[in-house]
Design a protein around this nucleic acid. Structure first.
Lengths: 342, 342
DNA sequence: GGCACTTATGCAAGGGTTTGCATGGATTGG
DNA sequence: CCAATCCATGCAAACCCTTGCATAAGTGCC
């Protein structure tokens, strides 16, 4: 048997509205009545109907997590983010549900739908590609649905963003390679992602500072995800057309794929080529050789993003400076890098 | 501006209820009126309020995904499952949200809550541990909330399950090792998980069929997850106390961790020790040496589980035989196994 | 002891849909 | 031409909760 508030009220001998207030510990209700109602509710296992409550409150008490496609969850960084998000969501009584942009990168329909159907009070967007944000429909923002972007940025009303300091990451990694004597440093990554472009900026800055000439041939931009396969393909192209002594990969998976190719061609790591990745996925420390990388605190990013979103959803005033956050990164040195071969 | 059905009705010059039916293409409404209403709704961007609709229908049109903790998503098999689940959910207009059992394995509170608060019409449980199912509260099932278990099994009313043929997997893997001449084959896995226990059964069966004596010392059961760390720890214990030529690991991550330990101790794979894993995670093919493993079609499991759940939620009759499904597995041979050293 | 307050509770509208039943007009058949 | 039918639409209750306002009972004051 599932009880309704009315059942509880009747059995407790009070009015429906009194029971409602009692359940939420409203100070209007006497401590005596209040506890009587609450105990009865507890005994009967009563729980308020979330839909009715949402309807009355005009709050869904839910956050939509937007990813491009479900396999995105295979990205360990996203999982880390999620841990942080969940922590904050739970603390604030928000449920979390999943939406996809259905592959069509430019597709805002999920976000819009969540809002229009009032299934969520806000969205957390984990899509890094530019396409997604270049031309957000006015419809969306004019309606003031709170949205927080992770690894992306859209400045608008009711919008926040959380990004790692990708520029700094690219800079630190490249600088370290230069310190080790490398001059010809290749880059592999998906150029359509905002975060990769930032890393490239850091890469260029470090090269420029050191007076190392950059060459267009040293880039390989893959169109899409940072998968091992893409890393491997890019590596094969690089090996065919140019010589170099180090590779900076915009993602550990890509680094892993690229390293496999190098190994299979009999190259020694880091003897012949040094590799440096990005993300510090769990695996990076567990392969041979272990991968040097730029570490990002994914849980922290998730927590911050969720906090901003909660504030926006609750209508709390958030100082402009706290809406767009950049999180520092850290270089982790492991076996995959070494002095440049002479 | 967000419109309500009443707005649409007024502008279309019809009654609220007529508009409601028109939106759903009810045959009661004339084609003319119907299309007039629908076009107007489309033009104004009207979308029904999901909460109000849920309240009226007594359907949340949502599925809750229950995992033990968020980091479970780091398990690639779960992600594969999710791909399948999402496909079916979307097809049937169900939303998906995430719940955890909050670490306390025995905690059914999330599942109960989803049901009591009517936020979900059914649950998909991705928790393999026995604790979780040993003593499910009657409350739960007496209320007939549809639940489908993946990698676990609870036979009850309104309940389904999807499991891989773990027995067969354990059997095939072990048999292959035996064919390669191995006699002392160790096992590593979390014994509290139903799926691992099945694999152990298969392992024993193969040994028994071949007349190979099994030894208690060859097991190492780790309490919890199939992480690389646990695999490594177990491997260290094994190496200290006994000699063997092959290890069957109940999970590729464990195999990877165990292999790292072996390599770090100067053992050659598969020269000195053969390794075989389970799951065929993406990574298995990309490490050196690549890992032989038992492959499971995760997406298929997800799809089947979701289909069963949808049927249960909709009240469709499901023949008893279609409620508990076992999916075949396949042995994938890679570099990590070879003939037993003599 | 009447007045102004405070405190605890009840009343009823409102939130946006769905849906069984009633109604009114048009159509058919005898 | 009227009764019987049918079709399209309107009416109102129901889903379950929240909340501003009204009411009733209890307190203190002069």
């Amino acid at each position: 048997m599932r009880y309704t508030l009315e059942d509880i009220a009747r059995k407790a001998g009070v009015h429906l509205s009194t029971a409602s207030r009692a359940m939420r510990n409203d100070k209007l209700i006497s401590a005596e009545t209040s506890s009587k109602v609450r105990e009865l509710a507890k005994k009967l296992g009563y729980r308020p109907n979330a839909m009715a409550r949402s309807l009355a409150n005009q709050k869904a008490m839910a956050i939509e997590i937007v990813v491009s496609t479900i396999p995105s969850f295979a990205n360990p960084m996203l999982v880390q983010n999620l841990v942080g998000v969940y922590e904050i969501a739970e603390l604030n009584d928000y449920d979390i549900f999943i939406g996809t942009s259905e592959g069509t990168v430019q597709d805002w329909s999920t976000v819009l739908r969540a809002f229009q159907e009032r299934k969520a009070d806000g969205c957390l967007v984990f899509i890094g590609s530019d396409d997604f944000v270049n031309d957000p429909p006015d419809k969306l923002f004019s309606k003031l649905l709170p949205v927080v972007f992770v690894n992306n940025m859209v400045r608008h009303q009711n919008t926040g963003s959380v990004n790692f300091d990708n520029f700094q990451g690219g800079y630190l990694a490249t600088k370290r390679l230069i310190e080790l004597g490398h001059k010809r440093i290749a880059f592999i990554g998906p150029g359509k992602e905002r975060l990769t472009r930032e890393r490239i900026r850091g890469y260029h800055r470090a090269l420029k500072e050191a007076g190392v000439k950059t060459s267009q041939e040293l880039y390989v931009e893959r169109q899409y995800d940072m998968t091992g396969e893409n890393g491997a393909t890019a590596m094969k192209q690089l090996l065919q057309r140019i010589d170099f002594t180090a590779v900076f990969c915009s993602g550990d998976w890509m680094a892993l794929g690229a390293m496999e190719v190098a190994k299979s061609q009999g190259l020694s790591i880091p003897g012949d080529i040094s590799f440096i990745g990005f993300d510090d996925i769990h695996l990076a420390a567990h392969v041979t050789p272990s991968i040097s990388t730029v570490k990002q605190d994914g849980e922290k990013a998730g927590r911050i993003a969720a906090k901003i979103l909660v504030d926006l959803m609750k209508g709390n005033a958030v100082p402009d400076g706290n809406l767009d956050i950049t999180i520092p990164v850290e270089l982790i040195e492991r076996e995959s890098i070494g002095p440049a071969p002479r």
